[in-house]
């Protein structure tokens, strides 16, 4: 390797480390600053809490075993809604692709539902689906399903027309075109929709837990607000941040594994 190339690689590495350092610096400064301001009573610790109080609350939740129940509940609901959302989204997208007239008929309805703030449907969902996990799943599905359908369907529409023509010239029927071309060609779009979908599902689950639940991180946050225990609220938010980050990373890992597309 030439000296010039070595220098460039070294510079690139330095830049990478600098970015990580800057990110860590921001996080650490933020928490230390917050702690100091709360300790010095510059900010009201009752309203703004402090990192040490939040960590203590999380520690207590871990000791009591309560935290795991809340994490498990939210995770279970998220994974369930995610799987249902992706599976139904995939099937509906296939139907829309195979029946273009159907796609044209329901297009405005999909747009309408997609632009509707779903939380407005909360009270109706509770009455229809019951004040239980069902409502949470329905709420999450309302948010992730339309996004899934639109993403996967648009992926199907983006398939190279020449390849469709080629398969038709071999005498391929609709199912063969779907199996040999549309689905494998849209793999990348489907996989990238997983990331968006998991985030959307988590939003739906937390919204659902706000409305109706006795367990889950959303419940923890809303309960903290009701009893004016803002440290509990922030502990819930911190756990949620970590959890959503971990879920996102897992989905990214799956995405990388699946997209070994040549």
């Amino acid at each position: 390797m030439s000296e010039e190339a070595k220098k460039i690689i070294k510079k690139k590495k330095q830049k990478k480390y600098f970015i990580i350092f800057a990110q860590l610096f921001i996080v650490i400064t933020f928490f230390i600053g917050w702690e100091i301001l709360a300790k010095a009573k510059v900010i009201n610790p009752f309203i703004f809490s402090s990192p040490s109080r939040i960590l203590k609350t999380i520690y207590e939740l871990i000791l009591s075993g309560e935290l795991w129940i809340h994490i498990y509940t939210t995770l279970y609901e998220t994974i369930l809604a995610f799987i249902i959302g992706i599976s139904c989204g995939f099937i509906i997208a296939i139907l829309l692709y195979e029946f273009p007239t159907l796609a044209k008929i329901i297009d405005p309805f999909l747009t309408m539902i997609n632009s509707l703030p779903k939380v407005a449907l909360g009270p109706i969902i509770i009455i229809w689906a019951g004040a239980n996990t069902n409502s949470i799943i329905v709420m999450a599905l309302l948010i992730n399903l339309i996004v899934s359908i639109l993403n996967i369907y648009n992926g199907f529409l983006g398939v190279d027309e020449t390849k469709i023509k080629l398969l038709k010239s071999f005498g391929a029927n609709k199912i063969q075109i779907l199996k040999h071309l549309i689905i494998p060609e849209s793999k990348r779009t489907i996989i990238s929709s997983l990331k968006i979908n998991i985030s959307m599902t988590l939003i739906g689950v937390i919204m659902g837990e706000f409305l109706v639940s006795k367990k889950g991180i959303g419940y923890l946050i809303i309960y903290g607000t009701q009893v004016f225990n803002l440290t509990l609220v922030m502990a819930g938010i911190l756990v949620l941040i970590v959890l959503s980050f971990l879920i996102y990373e897992v989905v990214s890992f799956i995405e990388k594994k699946l997209s070994t597309d040549r």
Partner: peptide, 13 residues
């Protein structure tokens, strides 16, 4: 009938 198109239309996967 064998049909060859403007581009190779090979499937990358």
């Amino acid at each position: 009938i064998g049909y060859m198109l403007q581009n190779d239309a090979l499937f990358p996967w």
